[in-house]
Nucleic acid binder design. Structure first.
Length: 920
RNA sequence: GCGGAUGUGGCGUAAUUGGUAGCCGCGCCAGACUUAGGAUCUGGUGCCGAAAGGCGUGGGGGUUCGAGUCCCUUCAUCCGCACCA
């Protein structure tokens, strides 16, 4: 008889569900701890073994924290809107809600089997009107707020209007699009439409007509983080630039706070660095250059105002608005040709041609602000319209791109910073002394920068400025399966619905495709208008809308009066531990921080950073197996014999391979093509080759948790996933090792049970040796969990069980605390043992045992003794030996004579408790 | 090109943070039990060597009584960003 995991696991899953063991409420007697898993999108394929890795880690941590006396919030829900369900709807006509519901049920079934401690009463789904009511509510708040740069926070638009009414916009310092100055009087004279148009430049959610990422295959625009190298992240379809009117979120208003906040959160350095790069802060100056024979001025942004005397020409982006104005008649045809060519090229092509230099002279000249020298103005697509001002002053001596351009077009190169050799290439470093630079000659770069900025400001032709790479987030999607905007249009002007009208529910449509005229799918909904008959917005919100504040909703998921109650948010505050993949670094993890900061500004949440600590679980890679078919035959040769044949490696389903030995019968059945396959074996076996690849259906290397749970149980799966290696590291999944963990579980069970599986635990007092094993384990396991080192914790349990097994320990005094500790990792087994030990209730509320120094300490120490750094023998000495006694004992030890060779040691290093090194 | 991370047995990994390199598990080898073994148990297992011993943490160099750990340099792999002025 043996441990019956199937029965035991089923029993406790039912117990937990019936007793609502994991239900969590506010409890001011206990400190709170909020552990969150990243919001899953329930895909049709279900979970493979890689998905639950982070969930298991966070579950262990949650259970551990509960046993340590914390009130732990550990919820789960679904990011239920999304493209796959909608693409499926387009193909089959099945409503995405049905697909989504089915996928959620499948997910839930799989999650339940793993034994997670989620409080399912708090489940949320982004597609549930009770949930997205608050997504829409937040959008209304964003629409009704602007960002005040003076107070560095969001403030109501009504305050801005009051300001306009008394003083116009002159003294307003807001994050906004360029707005011409107006007085209070001018404001009052504006029509409603004009006023709304002005306000749109200030709103944190605003409608704007700009270049967007358009993905024709998906029929929608995409945010910057949803595009990678010119292709959509989801689906890999080409993306083009297109001018469209779309909703945006003014995330750029928060750029500096998003950057600054990174200093105060415990995230991996790599994710923080990715976010810093994405935000892309650069310090420099904007400078206005006059244009010869023109009134217009060209504004440039530069991080190197110190090099201004090295600026010998100007470059505008082909899309720059001044291009038409300043191009001379003579150069118009050439310039137009270049603009058309540049415009036609996709981002993809543009990126592929980074190395080639191209550009076109406009015929006009700018005037150097200090020297008055003429500077030819070019257009070139190495200058991006979307960054800075879309124009640069080119300093070929100190910028490699300008250098290449100048060489290509034969333009002047003037060295202004010492340290390089401009014959060979540009010198881009910010180190050196200024030369050829008039009033800054002899200064170091840093001082030159501030002196030039001061002079520019005095002359009124420039100013110090901080520029960000971060762009406002495109918030409209031309799709069906998303949150409707709470927006209607009156005479073409957008207005938001009153909060009392929320939720604005997603309407039914006949098809999930755009209309024949190219309108988004919501245009198909009949009666898509307000009670008064005003048309409603036809776009829907993007995926990140619903996932940006879900962690707040978990605190108070059923509240119909507010996104979250004051009570709940003041108790739970924010997420203490967030576990999830690193792929959300520039998407979700930055949007949520922005969203949370806004909600903080309006007083809804109490912490300005949503996720205190972030752990990124590494990817689980697949381990593929191969068979080797001899070309042109149906004959397969075993791995080590393959060299002698001309072969094609073929992926074989890893589920019919055990320890790299192919199950021949299963292989023949696996695919009709191989029904009559023949084999060349080695030692009577067919050995497969293997390789580490992505876990994917197409490689036949997918392992799903259900099969493993069926054969080994959920506790074994949980332990094995943790045992695999450090949580943050990418590692291959190799099912071969799971049996070791399975053995451990049964070994542990046998400590509590006799040969015939009878209960065996005795109340006899434990020996010192047994206590030592236990207390060492308590100490190490506790420390390991605190530092998320779950793999070493599992290995510590194994050592403990091995040692207790050797000691033949069956004492309650030892085995009861062990059952409590193991219950975080193997909750079913832990719960069963806890009850067998005679306890009622649940082991989840048992107290995590405490270790005592007196049991852990050794009274002797085994000193490794080395000679010249090489360990030669070991010497057991009392733990309290002094340096002198240790040294004496070492030198008189019989083994020492051989290594001393009669010489007197030059030096003897004794590190008490650690090591002895004798230098000869 | 820039930035980040990682390189330790046949494999996944560990190492008290500068102090016995290889814990734990897989695999492999040997043995026990067994009608059988892809079950269970026991022992062994870094490499070379019969042994004594030598070598050994991607490579090279350095600091130190002592380096997987610190410094310099180099190579490889993975990830992120990429004409960002």
């Amino acid at each position: 008889m043996d441990y019956n995991f199937r029965e035991v696991e089923k029993k406790w899953r039912r117990f937990w569900s019936e007793n609502k063991t994991y239900k969590t409420d506010i409890d001011r007697q206990k400190p709170k701890f909020y552990v969150l898993d990243m919001f899953p999108y329930p895909s049709g394929a279900g979970l493979h073994v890689g998905h639950p890795l982070g969930y298991i880690a966070s579950d262990i941590y949650s259970r551990f924290k509960r046993q340590k006396g914390f009130n732990v919030l550990h919820p789960m829900g679904y990011d239920a809107y999304g493209l796959p369900a909608e693409q499926y709807a387009i193909q089959t006509g099945q409503h995405p809600a049905i697909t989504t519901e089915r996928n959620i049920n499948r997910y839930r079934e799989q999650l339940d089997k793993i034994g997670f401690s989620y409080d399912w009463d708090r489940e949320v789904r982004t597609c549930d009107p009770g949930y997205y009511k608050w997504t829409q509510w937040t959008f209304i708040q964003l629409f009704n707020h602007y960002y005040n740069n003076k107070t560095r926070k969001a403030e109501p638009i009504s305050q801005l209007v009051a300001e306009f009414e008394t003083r116009g916009n002159a003294v307003v310092d807001a994050a906004c699009d360029p707005v011409p100055a107006f007085s209070a009087g001018q404001w009052k004279q504006m029509s409603e439409a004009q006023q709304q148009q002005v306000l749109m430049n200030y709103r944190l959610a605003y409608l704007s007509d700009t270049m967007v990422n358009w993905c024709p295959a998906l029929g929608t625009v995409l945010a910057n983080d949803e595009v990678k190298e010119g292709f959509s992240v989801r689906g890999g379809h080409p993306v083009e630039r297109k001018k469209m009117q779309q909703w945006f979120l003014r995330i750029t208003a928060y750029a500096d706070r998003l950057l600054e906040g990174l200093e105060r959160i415990e995230w991996s350095e790599s994710i923080k660095e990715i976010q810093r790069n994405w935000i892309g802060r650069s310090e420099g100056a904007t400078i206005f250059f006059g244009v010869k024979d023109h009134d217009s001025k060209i504004e440039v942004f530069t991080t190197r105002p110190d090099t201004i005397f090295g600026a010998t020409f100007m470059v505008l982006a082909p899309e720059h608005e001044l291009v038409k104005q300043i191009t001379t008649r003579e150069f118009t045809p050439e310039v137009e040709k270049y603009v058309t060519m540049a415009g036609r090229r996709s981002d993809r092509e543009r990126m592929a041609e980074v190395k080639t230099v191209s550009g076109q002279f406009t015929g006009s000249y700018a005037v150097h602000p200090f020297s008055g020298k003429p500077m030819p103005i070019y257009i070139a697509d190495y200058v991006l319209a979307g960054y800075g001002t879309g124009a640069i002053m080119a300093v070929p001596a100190h910028d490699s791109r300008d250098y290449a351009f100048a060489k290509h077009f034969g333009l002047d190169i003037v060295e202004v910073v010492t340290g390089g050799n401009i014959e060979e290439g540009s010198y881009d470093a910010k180190e050196g002394t200024m030369i050829n630079s008039d009033f800054i000659n002899g200064l170091e770069v840093k001082d030159a920068i501030s002196k030039v900025i001061a002079r520019l400001e005095k002359m009124g032709i420039g100013t110090g400025r901080i520029n960000f790479r971060l762009r406002d987030a495109i918030f409209s999607r031309q799709r069906y399966w998303g949150e409707p905007f709470p927006v209607y249009y009156k005479e073409g002007i957008p207005y938001v619905l009153d909060v009392s009208e929320l939720p604005l529910e997603l309407p039914e449509v006949d098809k999930y495709l755009p209309t024949e005229t190219g309108e988004p799918p919501l245009a198909r909904a009949s009666g898509w208008q307000t009670k008064e008959g005003y048309p409603l917005e036809r776009n829907t919100m993007p995926g990140f809308a619903g996932s940006s504040a879900y962690y707040i909703r978990y605190m108070d998921p059923h509240n119909e009066q507010a996104l979250v109650s004051k009570d709940a948010v003041e108790y739970w505050e924010n997420v203490d531990l967030y576990v999830g993949g690193a792929e959300h670094a520039t998407g979700h993890l930055i949007y949520s921080r922005f969203w949370n900061k806004f909600l903080f500004d309006i007083g809804l949440v109490v912490k300005d950073e949503p996720f205190k600590k972030l752990i990124n679980q590494g990817m689980i890679q697949g381990r593929s197996n191969f068979v080797y078919r001899i070309k042109g035959t149906n004959k397969f040769v075993s791995y080590n014999l393959r060299k002698d044949y001309d072969i094609t490696p073929i992926h074989v389903d890893v589920n019919i391979v055990h320890h790299d030995v192919l199950d021949l019968e299963a292989f023949r059945k696996w695919n009709p093509e191989y029904k009559n396959a023949e084999f060349i074996l080695e030692d009577g076996k067919y050995i497969c080759g293997w390789e580490i690849e992505k876990m994917s259906k197409s490689f036949n290397n997918v392992q799903n948790p259900d099969d493993l749970i069926e054969s080994y149980g959920a506790d074994t799966l949980r332990l094995y996933e943790m045992f695999l290696g450090p949580i943050e590291q990418a590692k291959p999944w190799d099912t071969n090792g799971i049996e070791g963990v399975f053995r451990f579980i049964r070994k542990l069970w046998r400590l509590y049970h006799g040969k015939n599986n009878e209960w065996y635990v005795a109340d006899d007092p434990a020996t010192d040796q047994e206590k030592k094993v236990l207390h060492k384990t308590i100490k190490k396991v506790g420390e390991d969990i605190e530092k998320f080192s779950f793999n070493t914790a599992v290995s510590t349990f194994m050592i403990c069980v091995n040692e207790l097994g050797d000691l033949g320990c069956n004492k309650r005094e030892i085995l009861e605390p062990l059952a409590v500790m193991i219950s975080s990792f193997a909750p079913h087994l832990g719960e069963e043992l806890w009850h067998l030990l005679g306890h009622g209730g649940s082991v989840t509320v048992a107290e995590f045992p405490k270790w005592e120094e007196k049991f852990v300490a050794d009274d002797t120490i085994t000193y490794p003794v080395s000679f010249n750094g090489k360990t030669r023998f070991k010497l057991v000495l009392p733990a309290d030996s002094t340096k002198e006694t240790v040294e004496a004992a070492v030198l008189t030890a019989p083994e020492a004579a051989k290594w001393l060779e009669g010489k007197v040691p030059k030096r003897v290093i004794v590190v008490p408790g650690k090591i002895v090194n004798v230098v000869i």
